[in-house]
Design a protein around this nucleic acid. Sequence first.
RNA 1: GCCUUGGUGGCGGAAUUGGUAGACGCGCUGGAUUCAAAAUCCAGUGCUGGCAACAGCGUGUGGGUUCGAUUCCCACCCAAGGUACCA
Length: 937
Amino acid sequence: MKYNFLEIEKRWQDYWAANNTYQAATNSDKPKYYVLDMFPYPSGAGLHVGHPLGYIATDIYARFKRHQGYNVLHPQGYDSFGLPAEQYAIQTGQHPAITTENNIKRYREQLDRMGFSFDWSREVRTSDPSFYKWTQWIFLLLFDSYYCQNEDRAQPISKLVKIFENAGNLQVLAICDADTPKFSADQWCAMKADQQAKILLHYRLAYLAETEVNWCPALGTVLANDEIVNGVSERGGHPVTKKKMKQWSMRIGAYAERLLQGLEKIDWPESLKEMQRNWIGKSVGASVQFEVADHDETITVFTTRPDTLFGVTFMTLAPELDLVLKIASTDQKEAVEAYIAATAQRSERDRMADVKTISGVFTGAYAIHPFTQQKIPIWIGDYVLAGYGTGAVMAVPCGDQRDYDFAKHFNIPIVNIFDGADISEAAFSDKSGVKLMDSDFLDGLDYKQAVKKVIEVLEAQNRGRGTINYRLRDAIFSRQRYWGEPIPVYYKDGLPQPLALEDLPLILPEVENYLPTSEGAPPLGNATDWAWDTQQHKVVSNDQIDHQTVFPLELNTMPGWAGSSWYFNRYMDAQNSDAFVSKSALSYWSEVDLYLGGSEHATGHLLYSRFWQKFLYDYELVPVDEYAKKLINQGMILGTSAVAYREHGTQNYISKNKIEGRAVEPIRVDVSLVDASDQLDIEGLKKWQPQFASATFELEANAFIVEREVEKMSKSKYNVVNPDQICETYGADTLRMYEMFLGPIEQAKPWNTAGISGVHSFLKKFWRLFHADNKLLVNDQPAAAEDLKIAHQTIKKVTEDISAFSFNTCVSSFMICVNQLTSAKCHSREVLEPLVVLLAPFAPHIAEELWQALGHKTSVTQASYPKYNPDYLVESTKEYPVSFNGKMRFKAAFPLAMNQEQITALILENEQTQKYLEGKAPKKVIVVPGKIINIVS
RNA sequence: GCCUUGGUGGCGGAAUUGGUAGACGCGCUGGAUUCAAAAUCCAGUGCUGGCAACAGCGUGUGGGUUCGAUUCCCACCCAAGGUACCA
């Protein structure tokens, strides 16, 4: 019988679907294990061989855990809101829901073909109202919450209102915007309702505020910081400018410290944790208040070096600050205004491009040093960012290189406060080793002592305090797009009013046109039925808006990261219509045990989702505050492009090794036209594209050889390899094993179809251990000790390697095993049966087939994982490499039971040893039992 | 610049706590089988010299520790990813 993978794979895939083989039990006495992939955005291009890499790895692990007796949750779904479907809708008018549905169908067909053990009964789609109902629900919960610093967690906003009624906000410890006004209880109670509502927006975790945003005119939408790469939009590469807009934001900054601390207890890659740490950007220092001379203003600066306070010779403000124009002197006003205008004109990209240029303008105003009372000139400069700290820095040129450069450039005095430091060429920014001088009460103190002392004094005099600053910005949550979750809010007197939880989901309306309206409102502005009737609790026509009982709904939608910030919880109880997840499902499944996805989500999805989880945890809605115990980043599979060289200005193509200095240009050709030895199929090429039909080819050794180049897989580089095609020629089992065999899962590695034959012939060899012609070779006779040893060595190695996620070495072990058993002509059931189960996670189809051939009536999925028997692995003698002065010379075998002294005595008598020693006595003999013998002469 | 990860044959990649570097696969060379092909099987394959036995050199570079270093320490070079006037 031949190994007919096409027939086998089809049959077992149908069987698994018909029998719900991989459905996770809701109630089970077994221990649970939750294996999760980052769910895909269903793009129109379908899958290429790079996409399933991670799914194969998790599938192997999920199957492995099932064999080990775990109740495994291994779900899959779609992050189905997103830009491409909307762009397609703009171009063609096809509703994004239809595009998305079609793409999902294609994805599903491709995924099914690879034999994944997903529990599809738990599938989620972020664009499905039954799912986004709960995304909206979480949003409303965030809107209804503030961050209480006393308890260090989110609390209902009603609690804050109580506090305001009793004591105002003078004493309250809650995270809020910097510009929040201060008020007493009496003042609060005297306020009108809309005034109170405005104040509460300064505290809510989901809030509406006028913010400086990254505006992308080409896409017509706002982008988050992590959606911008090198100053242009990540999607499409369009320019991005700054713009002030009223936007929904998420107060993720409130969770900065907990997001930082949480990293300590999760098993995630170090590089990824480091990325998140940098993104959060914690700095410890002090805020110091400087009064402005002749003005009733105070400037607060943040500094990480409060010890250098006596080295301050000027101050720099971000040009964007409102304060700047208030304090600028009459004679400098013109220059200041010109500078502000120039800064505003510059795009983000320009500003990043020349960080070297020093620019700034003196405001004509002076600050008063809190201790020396000296007048300090106030400058503005675009090296100070409005968005970080307070947008103002105290400049200490002797201790900070940028301040130093700025001072040199504008001839501002530099004073040295570091005893013995040389600041003639550059600032002295080293924190250790020197003591302060000319610093009043800090004289003679080192960095640590001085920081402590100065903060004490500042706090005692109420001129500043110890402060911690985070780089992490609050996340903009509004998008001016159609294809996203509607924000469940309507507007009354210009203020946002939440829908009631019972009124969810607020379903995305139909629109005629997916572009912004002519007035520049988001696409939802095109909807004719987009008003909220507060009495009937439903969406009604815009005509009925009366601002009494019917109000306009929010036109912005949520960003792409909304649904993905909590979807992993939904899989636990995907069909629930009464709760986002039931308590019982949460208490059983609890958290993701293994999460696998790309590192490109480090500062986006993987940070936002941790934030939402912590928020849900504060309300005891989830049992743990970190949702993924272990995370692995899979590396990309790169394409191996094929390049044919064409002689310049001709249609003559030259084989790789015949170029020799001739003028040629590289032309990429389809990789499927090139074989394992880089030989091009010329006839195929001529049929592929008409431009090659009349081309001529200069061969070498009767073949045309192409150049190879490793780069990202992409349609335009003709290096995309389609998994369907591989499944057709080699089968899904071969594809699965080959993708694992390519290299370590975390590493980026090139795809090369040529290498796949090795893995495919392994499966054929494995098959031939069971079948020959038309009969089953497997016998029930006891196996030879040698053969059992081969099997159990493999079981040991593979089990250890799967546990360590080293799947590539597993495949190698299988190959060694099958080669040995083939030469041993071993067909014993005792040896082969456990190997079928061992192989099942990697190549499930062939394993099912062979399992059945061995006479089993149930799926191999139900078989328990083989345990290796150490008795079979015991060796009585060991061959030692014998080295002289560390260099290996020959091998000698000794019983393993022999101790060091016995081996030492024997090796010195050895004939070969004598030859190498040439009669001299050795200086030293080193014997490491089980490992090596080294003789030092 | 800073942070993180990595650098091993023609290629993808192996190598437990320092102990035979190059497992396994691809490719290549030779052979068997075949009328022939496909398929399959066997042998060889780090580099240099040599018919050979063998010798020398070899894990980015230069040092160090050690009987012994791909592995540990120091300095440097290169690549990938992240980040960027963060006070």
